[in-house]
């Protein structure tokens, strides 16, 4: 990601120092992590989620990610606010890639800085679990013999 793109995110920053974005460009993991390091922090935990080639013996050729962009950004912002309320953390940065991703390319980065590492680990784990449950982004897996839109865990509170 270029500096220009970083300065022009597709999202509004709610807590200064936090950010959440969707991008069609490759994600520079280190750059995401370095954007959230205030002086009172002592540790940053970063998740680098990338495209897996083999799932239970089946080979993936590539993935396509699609988002309901405005709602995805709202939900990402909400997750960060909730993380601040639940964990002793300083800042959070989340960037999710969209479009076609090759094997090994980074699909999502979540970086959490905190005064102490324990809260950063816990918050990062909580954030990816919730992102996969509530943020409206979908992946299509393309195999040699076909393709399928993956369905995640069902969101608890919805219309029956």
């Amino acid at each position: 990601m270029s500096d220009e793109e970083i300065q022009n995110p597709k999202s509004k920053i709610q807590n200064p120092g936090d950010f959440f974005e969707l991008t069609n460009e490759p994600i520079d993991v280190g750059k995401v992590a370095r954007r959230i390091v205030p002086s009172e922090s002592g540790a940053t935990v970063t998740l680098d989620g990338y495209v897996r080639q083999w799932t239970k013996g089946k080979e993936t050729l590539y993935l396509i990610y699609e988002a309901y962009e405005p709602m995805a950004l709202k939900e990402m912002g909400r997750l960060i606010e909730t993380a601040h309320a639940r964990f002793e953390i300083a800042h959070v940065g989340i960037v999710h890639r969209l479009g076609k991703l090759e094997i090994g390319e980074t699909s999502v980065v979540i970086s959490v800085s905190a005064p102490h590492r324990k809260a950063a680990f816990e918050a990062c784990g909580w954030l990816i679990k919730e992102l996969k449950r509530t943020v409206p982004i979908w992946k299509k897996e393309v195999y040699a013999g076909g393709e399928v839109w993956i369905e995640g865990e069902n969101h608890g509170a919805n219309v029956n």
């Binding site: 990610y65 999710h96 999502v108 996969k132 979908w138 992946k139 865990e153």
Partner: peptide, 10 residues
């Protein structure tokens, strides 16, 4: 309105 399957980002 929007109708979609269970989300699968990450």
């Amino acid at each position: 309105l929007a109708i979609f399957t269970a989300v699968s980002g990450g």
